[in-house]
Amino acid sequence: MRSRHQFFRSSGSGHRVGSAARNTAATCSPQSLSGYFWLQHSGIGGTSVGVNNNTDFLRSVTEGIITARSQPIHRGRRQQLWSVDMRIDDGTLVARSQVRLQNIAMPESV
């Protein structure tokens, strides 16, 4: 799965706008979406929630496009473990993340 997030520098101040929210989205979205789609595709169904997230930010990015690629490490009935590499367009690794997801059964009425 590929996810692309664009970062922009705010005009004038030079501060990054919403960098904490965007960093969270960039690191959590690919694993969460991958985990959900795998549950649906595998026939297990339900949804998943993050129980642990560890992200190492290697380089600062103030503008441009970051491409996040998720890879499964473990996918089981109860939990999943996903890794994500985030790179800028020239292929430079800017962050690496690992998240553990808990699989949750959903009631039929939901």
Rank of each mutant, 00 (worst) to 15 (best):
M1Y: 00
R2Q: 15
R4Y: 00
Q6A: 12
F8E: 15
S10F: 03
S10P: 09
S11M: 05
H15Q: 09
H15L: 12
R16Q: 14
R16L: 15
V17F: 02
G18Y: 03
S19K: 08
S19R: 07
A20K: 02
A20C: 09
A21W: 09
N23A: 11
N23L: 10
N23I: 06
T24H: 01
A26Q: 13
C28L: 13
P30R: 07
P30N: 10
Q31A: 14
S32D: 12
L33N: 09
S34V: 06
G35C: 13
Y36E: 13
W38A: 08
W38I: 04
Q40T: 07
Q40A: 08
H41R: 09
I44N: 05
G45L: 10
G46E: 14
S48F: 04
S48A: 14
V49H: 02
V49G: 08
N52C: 06
T55M: 00
D56H: 05
R59W: 04
V61W: 01
T62M: 00
E63D: 14
E63N: 09
E63M: 03
G64P: 07
I66P: 03
A68F: 07
R69A: 13
R69I: 14
S70N: 10
Q71G: 05
P72T: 06
I73A: 09
I73P: 08
R75D: 15
G76Y: 01
R77A: 04
R77F: 03
Q79Y: 04
S83A: 08
V84I: 15
V84F: 08
D85C: 00
R87E: 14
D89F: 01
D89W: 00
D89R: 08
D90C: 04
G91R: 04
T92Q: 05
T92C: 05
L93K: 08
V94F: 00
A95I: 02
R96Y: 00
Q98K: 00
Q98D: 05
V99N: 00
R100Y: 03
L101V: 07
Q102F: 03
N103Q: 12
A105N: 12
A105H: 08
A105R: 12
M106W: 02
M106K: 13
P107H: 03
S109E: 15
S109R: 11
V110F: 06
